[in-house]
Write a protein that binds this DNA or RNA. Structure first.
Lengths: 350, 350
DNA sequence: TTGTACGCGTTATCAT
DNA sequence: ATGATAACGCGTACAA
């Protein structure tokens, strides 16, 4: 077991000073060709690699970025994470992930831990609990320290920082409109019970689309489910007591479970009921029937978030002026598959 | 924008020495109650938090663990990651993830980068390319430096380190046996083309089960697909030219796609063809019909791997003797759903 | 009870 | 061309 070689080790072996070694390894002009070659050869031979931690301490930058997400099993976050990791890695940054598990406390603890020097900046999506309590002090503390922060998907107006989102309202509206245009008349909504920004916005879009088509919003057609629901009673009762010919679901799992239940109850998809979901995950692609869905462009969001963050990090390092904060809207895309057959869109929305 | 407070700052403000501050904040007996209270109050007021990097440098331990996985979109790795993160976090460790994307080079680069002080130990599953080339020098280098390493799922005999695996051969054998016991006679195998250890072992199990039942292995019934295949021609041809009443698939996606195709070709699942897959992901649970599958216990594997790693890390830190390496076999579980109806198992295998 | 000095590994500045 | 010194932030053995 050979411990890591340090500059000091090399200096001792070669009987020169530490700073000579340091300079030689950076090919400094100050050092004679002879000694440089000798030192470099030795370093190569024994596979010298500088210690990241020491460099971090010296430079006050870690080349790590902290990612805090509510959940990794949800496919959407996985793809965002993939986008972040891909871009960051390409730029020489590593990614430290913490999963808040939708818990406010875990979000705060992890954030404070990482903020103490472990990372150069944060990328995060707020936990459900955080959105519920509307308590953003931990974010504020971090930004006040000058640590760059990029929020994605689950964001808040309360914090001034870069943001990457999709236009959830427009996406909800367009999906609903497309259902109406394809001849559906009673469109139900399966959404979450809770305080998720994104769900709320999609619901607004849903309502607007109905109103724009001159239809009443029937509260009876809105089903609010627990975020991670497992039993099917609520939805089964819903199916049996209401008539509708289409469903907009705020996520993929609600859609898949809905379809499954519909089929079990003897309905045909999409003939009797059409389904549109959110999140283009593996479930959407591989389900039977496959799911027509709003692609949230997770990987693109992740890449863009990482790009924005790294730019801020390097600006700060180069003492560039703190350019203003931007909110980037990633265009979504409706992917048509089997669960809802749509015509061509009649008009483009913004 | 207020930069982080350091011990030095506090010392200056309170006109004491740095070490007094340091000791006071650790409640050392050496310091008078007066000064301790004064210093602690000040630190609390201005929210002093020690700098992780400085502590890492001093202690030669980072409280970070490096995780290198081939892919995060594959649900199995996601769940393992979740298990790792959960346990590590609980023990006060953070997780740095790198995705090798099945590439040997990316695996090597990331590993070397992290090995230079950024982490206290590694948890990883080998990339497909690494398994193909059978080149493990990067792993050897790391273990020779005394950095603890735990391999999971995709492991190799070539490296002496802790390992966490499932018994893939037994799992393949048992699944096949159960199909045979339920009356199936011609069991096909959908496996990967390549050099994945796990696929190979599952195939061995498949063969043994057939032989144990006195059946010939028919090479015609083995379909080898590219790892991330997207077209369905190969499998469609396979379906049309062969007769079989059951399929064992080495992963979830192969199974889902296979079922989909079978249904498209007019077969009933499970009546005409039964399917068993590997990996109990969301696809298995939510597909129609839902998939009977071998649960690889990803989260359990992750937790166990993290536990083994952290133990080695702390042993090393406490200069405990390097206890021998262990290979832990996580018991798998056959989850029966709709795609294959099995009877009770007749005998337990080891 | 408090402070000084040193070390962790590196780099940058200033002497020699 | 080379080396000594200080600094990054912290902890600790030792000195006062």
């Amino acid at each position: 077991m050979k411990p890591k070689l340090t500059l000091k080790d090399i200096a001792r072996e070669l009987d020169v000073s530490i700073s000579t070694v340091s300079k030689a390894l950076k090919n400094s002009e100050e050092i004679s060709t002879d000694t440089k070659e000798k030192i470099q050869a030795f370093a190569r031979l024994y596979n010298y690699k500088p210690n990241n931690i020491a460099i971090s301490l010296k430079n006050k930058r870690t080349k790590n970025i902290g990612v805090i997400i509510p959940d990794i099993v949800h496919h959407f976050f996985t793809t965002v994470f993939r986008g972040i990791e891909k871009y960051a890695n390409q730029r020489g940054y590593n990614v430290i992930v913490c999963i808040s598990d939708e818990s406010f406390d875990r979000e705060v603890i992890n954030m404070e831990l990482l903020a103490n020097g472990s990372i150069d900046g944060f990328i995060m999506a707020l936990s459900a609990e955080t959105q519920k309590r509307q308590d953003f002090n931990h974010l504020r503390e971090v930004t006040e320290q000058g640590i760059p922060l990029v929020l994605f998907d689950r964001v808040t107006d309360q914090i001034a920082c870069d943001k990457v989102i999709i236009d959830d309202e427009a996406a909800g509206r367009d999906a609903t409109r497309r259902l109406l245009e394809s001849g559906r008349r009673r469109v139900a909504l399966f959404t979450t019970q809770s305080y998720l920004n994104v769900s709320a916005k999609r619901e607004v879009g849903y309502r607007k689309a109905l109103e724009a088509a001159g239809l009443q919003v029937d509260p009876e057609l809105i089903l609010r489910l627990p975020y991670q629901y497992e039993e099917e009673q609520a939805s089964e009762a819903f199916f049996k007591s209401r008539k509708f010919d289409a469903v907009l679901c705020v996520n993929e799992i609600f859609a898949i479970r809905g379809m499954r239940l519909a089929i079990k109850l003897g309905l045909r998809v999409p003939e009797d009921v059409a389904f549109i979901g959110f999140t283009d995950g593996i479930l959407s692609r591989y389900s039977t029937p496959s799911l027509t869905t709003v692609d949230q462009r997770g990987e693109a969001m992740g890449e863009r978030a990482a790009e924005m963050l790294i730019q801020k990090v390097e600006d700060r390092f180069d003492e560039a002026d703190p350019t203003q904060f931007r909110t980037e809207v990633i265009p979504v895309q409706l992917i048509e598959r089997e669960s809802a057959v749509l015509g061509k869109p009649t008009k483009a929305d913004g």
